[in-house]
């Protein structure tokens, strides 16, 4: 691998390999034999419409759902509670939360736990603060997580994954319901991780601001892979002519006759 081409991974071993993965939920097969590879230093997007099995796939990859058939290996070993130490997972925002309030720092600290780590390490507080600071939300440290905006919550959940210093980062729809400044902050944090050699798997509805991050895409339809390679710029109805929503910039006419324009990063 040369420094000039960070995507050249022919002599690297994959961070995660999935072969013929099948997942059944409530007696129904949702994934019908999925293959997936992600290498260090690259970002793979898992794309597809609603109900295509994107979230089911990442849940199986992290062990939150059992695979009914197939194999998943992480850095060369079969996926287990021990290999989980190298994975940072960001579930969909709606999956988290309970009946008791918790602060952003408490949530991030829980990212320091693991298979042999039922108690927080001594430096948990400092590490959680540093992770929040990396995402630009150190000021939210003692705020109740439920009182934060969607974008702020998402930054906290990403800090919880990054505090583990993972070699493989798996994110499920991190941009859903996230404001533009937070999207920028997330994009920067993810790019920095990828450039530092981490492997990133990211479930996306559309590429949006993450287009420059993503190296290749795996597109799912009805639980099967229908495309591997160049990320599609838009999917489904969005691919129709006149539906190109990846504008270079957008101009909104204002009531006083002027226009308000903002740039979307290329």
């Amino acid at each position: 691998m040369t420094a000039a081409d960070p995507y050249d991974h022919h002599d690297a071993s994959p961070a995660i390999t999935a072969r013929e993965v099948r997942v059944r939920l409530g007696g129904l097969e949702i994934l019908h034999g999925i293959d997936l590879d992600a290498y260090p230093g690259e970002a793979v997007a898992i794309m597809g419409g609603n109900g295509s099995g994107k979230s089911t796939l990442v849940r199986a990859l992290v062990g939150a759902l059992p695979a009914s058939a197939g194999s998943i290996s992480v850095f060369g070993s079969p996926r287990s509670r021990a290999t989980a130490a190298r994975i940072g997972y960001v579930p969909q925002r709606a999956s988290a939360g309970g009946g008791v309030t918790a602060t952003a720092r408490e949530v991030v600290q829980s990212g320091l736990l693991g298979a042999g780590q039922l108690l927080l390490p001594r430096d948990a507080k400092a590490r959680a603060l540093a992770a929040l600071d990396d995402l630009g939300v150190a000021n939210l440290e003692s705020r109740d997580i439920a009182s934060l905006s969607g974008g702020e919550q998402q930054r906290v959940l990403i800090a919880r994954a990054l505090v583990r210093d993972p070699d493989l980062l798996i994110l499920d729809e991190p941009m859903a319901g996230v404001d533009v400044p937070s999207q920028e902050a997330l994009s920067q944090a993810l790019t920095a991780r990828r450039d530092a050699g981490a492997s990133i798997i990211i479930v996306l509805h559309e590429l949006g601001v993450l287009a420059p991050l993503v190296h290749h895409a795996v597109v799912l339809e009805h639980g099967c892979v229908t495309h591997i390679g160049e990320p599609p710029r838009a999917l489904g109805v969005h691919a129709l002519p006149g539906h190109d929503h990846v504008h270079a910039h957008a101009d909104l006419p204002q009531p006083d006759g002027s226009t308000f324009s903002w740039e979307v990063r290329p």
């Binding site: 989980a84 939360g97 829980s110 736990l113």
Partner: peptide
């Protein structure tokens, strides 16, 4: 064990992913 029990009751999916 409150850190681990919090992690599991707060976000079970994440708790699975870290190997708890």
């Amino acid at each position: 064990l409150r850190a681990s029990l919090f992690a599991v009751t707060h976000d079970q999916e994440f708790a699975h992913s870290v190997g708890l």
